[in-house]
Design a protein around this nucleic acid. Structure first.
Lengths: 113, 113
DNA sequence: GGGTTGATTAACCGAATGGTTGAGAAGGGC
DNA sequence: GCCCTTCTCAACCATTCGGTTAATCAACCC
């Protein structure tokens, strides 16, 4: 996993990590809070967080013995940019792209896994 | 890699595979044509193609002894949908989303790795 | 049929992944 | 100081991944 985009796609290629991002979209959370919904060990979550951190998708603070995580969606823009190059291949008319995304935006769906 | 989205992200998490998609965005190609730019064996390319096919990102035909590959960007829409849920986190104003993507569209950049 | 070209399959290899358990660091609360 | 909580680090394990080489299949050409 040498390049930026591969690191990003790789970080997103795991349902647990995407679920963590979805949780963080609702606000900051500690490692224990993030781990709570999952049937795996805290240490495994810790590893997932390290992957997300390396990809720049989260940032971690330090508050007493807690390590609060925050979502950083910035890098997702790089992914969106890459995908945008292919939109004309799934949209019948190139200029319908805007409409499509405007509609998505109107739906105002909350991020979730 | 059990779920659809993980399969898609996983397929995209490799520079060789993304380069193959970029090449196919220019039109159909045989396995040998796809393999030509890369310093790796034909068999390795064959494996990458199988991954892309399982993810539904390419389809393969059969013409005499050639196995022409075609891009199928459809599944990328699922990825775009997932990402769209996070756009408000990197866009200052939610309703600027359309503008941003309209601009991308105006740039009309060709897909490339 | 025999040879060549295009592509896949199979077996193998080293490194990375996703998980585990166990130990330990760091920071309150008392 | 002592204990408890939170979290990370280290070692290990099984599986997957990305690559290799060798063998094989399938279709064409002569």
């Amino acid at each position: 996993m040498v390049d930026r985009l591969s690191e990003l796609f790789g970080a997103l290629a795991d349902p647990t990590r995407r679920a963590i991002l979805a949780r963080l979209a609702e606000g900051e959370a500690t490692v224990n809070q993030l781990a709570e919904p999952f049937p795996i060990s805290l240490q495994a979550i810790s590893k997932h967080l390290k992957v997300l951190e390396r990809a720049g998708l989260i940032t971690r603070g330090k508050e007493a013995q807690w390590r609060p995580c925050r979502l950083d969606a910035g890098p997702l823009r790089e992914v969106a940019d890459w995908i945008a190059d292919y939109q004309r291949f799934w949209e019948q008319r190139y200029d319908r792209l805007g409409d499509y995304l405007h509609q998505l935006q109107r739906d105002e769906t909350k991020p979730e896994e």
